[in-house]
Design a protein around this nucleic acid. Structure first.
Length: 400
DNA sequence: TCTGGGGTCCTAGGACCC
DNA sequence: TCTGGGGTCCTAGGACCC
């Protein structure tokens, strides 16, 4: 049996690094991505560019990525941009350009795929790679039992660099859970190999929330139980964990802390939902801002219909999401007899959902989501009344 | 300094059918 | 009138991830 080797590859400060390819004069400076179109750099007559600064920002956005120089000032992704502006007013602010990031995402993924085809997408800037059967990976030398896998990881990093000009960090371990942790151990431009024998020394000292799947809520609860590190968690009685967190999650916590994870690298998956949402510049009220809200919802339905068409899906269920000014979220869903395809179909269903929503409080966000997706080419033929084959059969006149 | 937008998965209750 | 489970679908909410 070959040793299982799973890699996690994470692009370093991805959006910001792509921007630095375009604006190399910003290298070495604190730069954040998160502005709107209005923060597009301005080309001056002398050929230099004038960049927006964080201090110029007013609005409700968040930082999506910051360079390592900006992180040194305390500015991290998901931080409110206004808060970031207090910490680093002179940092350069750039608008997100998803087309560009998608282009570089394709570039780095296809460069990796040429070397190792078993890739699982984890968003725009991360992948898992199953390297178990990749050529040479199992080779050992007298002084290095990991010679083969190390050479392979170096080769992948170089291929990404050659294809994009960008650096990435790779963790290689026997499973996805450990690799995800390992890729962060030596960022940026890291290469970290961790085996089961290293868990005690390299994994157990880390905070429990470094495990993918332990978020803020679980981490806080663990803290109240006196559990701060992964090692603390590993030492915990599994029955106690099941008691506190439920059978599934509790048992998983125990396994995760011991670095056990049998999940396969999944190279293909169908989307489960498609959604569009928007946060308003100012809170809106269903009564006093009815027309504006209706227009925004219609626009979202059009965007959703576009996205569904691009991806080739219709939806049996449409759901509306509201976020109130106190940040509470409400969702209402409506399942249709015939799958929604057009913006009008979606808008009608969204209207049904909205009827079931409480609308007393001021709204901060509205969103619309397509669920129970059907590939468009598997749809019952759209003939006239749009009835399903079953309905048509029922409608057939009785013979004789 | 109030916290985006795109997703996945899990849980739990109720309806409905056998 | 009360008593059963099992299975599936739908809905709502919540945790978590990038």
């Amino acid at each position: 049996m070959p040793r299982r080797w799973i890699a996690h590859l994470d692009m370093d400060a991805f959006y910001a690094s792509v921007e630095l390819l375009r604006y190399p004069e910003l290298r070495g400076q604190p730069v954040v991505v998160g502005g709107r179109r209005a923060h597009e750099p301005e080309l001056l007559p002398d050929g230099t560019r004038k960049f927006a600064l964080l201090r110029d920002y007013a609005g409700r956005g968040v930082i999506t990525t910051s360079t390592y120089e900006a992180r040194a000032l305390g500015v991290f992704s998901a931080m409110g941009t206004m808060k970031a502006a207090k910490l680093a007013p002179d940092a350069v602010l750039l608008p997100a350009d998803f087309e560009q990031y998608t282009k570089y995402s394709r570039l780095f993924k296809s460069a990796v795929r040429e070397i190792a085809p078993l890739i699982e997408n984890r968003g725009i800037d991360e992948i898992y790679i199953d390297l178990t059967d990749a050529p040479g990976v199992q080779e050992e030398t007298d002084d290095d039992p990991h010679a083969g896998i190390t050479a392979m990881a170096r080769r992948i990093k170089q291929a990404v660099k050659d294809a994009t000009g960008l650096s990435c960090s790779i963790g290689v371990t026997p499973n996805k859970l450990l690799s995800k942790i390992a890729s962060e151990l030596d960022k940026p431009d890291g290469l970290t190999i961790v085996t089961y024998a290293d868990i005690r020394e390299r994994i157990w000292p880390l905070p429990a929330k470094r495990i993918n799947g332990i978020g803020p809520k679980a981490a806080a609860k663990l803290e109240t139980l006196g559990i701060r590190t992964i090692g603390d968690l590993a030492a915990m009685d599994p029955l106690r964990l099941v008691d506190e967190f439920g059978a599934n999650y509790g048992a998983w916590l125990h396994e995760a802390a011991h670095g056990r994870d049998e999940r396969e690298v999944v190279t293909h998956s169908e989307p489960k939902s498609i959604s569009c949402e928007t946060t308003f510049e100012r809170d809106l009220h269903a009564r006093t801002d009815r027309a504006e809200l209706g227009a925004i919802l219609t626009r979202l339905c059009e965007r959703l219909a576009d996205a569904m068409e691009r991806k080739g899906y219709a939806a049996k269920t449409i759901a509306v999401k509201l976020r109130f000014d106190d940040f509470r979220i409400v969702t209402r869903a409506h399942t249709l007899a015939n799958a929604a395809i057009t913006a009008q179909d979606i808008r009608r269903a969204a209207g049904q959902c909205l009827k079931k929503c409480p609308l007393e409080k001021r709204l901060r966000l509205i969103g619309v989501r397509a669920d129970k997706l059907l590939p468009i080419n598997e749809l019952p033929a759209p003939d006239g009344d749009g009835s399903t084959p079953e309905e048509e059969q029922l409608a057939l006149p009785l013979s004789g």
